[in-house]
Amino acid sequence: MSDKALLAALAAGDHALAARLYMETAEASSGDDASAFYATHAYVHALQAGQAAIEERAGALLRRLGRLR
């Protein structure tokens, strides 16, 4: 994930793009803590964007890591 791309997405209020960028980073991260951190942000932005597919992916990842009910 490029910080520049993410900051631009957040500045533009583009939650769909932010969700996608965070999700990609979550799935590319090697440690559980890092994955969960980024997946949490992906989940929140997916909720805001109405991106059910990313919400589901992020939720599944968080639940597998024991970070979401």
């Binding site: 890092a34 994955s35 949490t40 929140v44 909720l47 024991g66 970070r67 979401l68 009910r69």
Partner: peptide, 24 residues
Amino acid sequence: HSWSYDHGGTLKITPHAGGPGNNI
């Protein structure tokens, strides 16, 4: 802190409330 609710008022997520990356 991005606590998020649906339109029925139900809490959907409390991000990092259990520590960074932990939403429980």
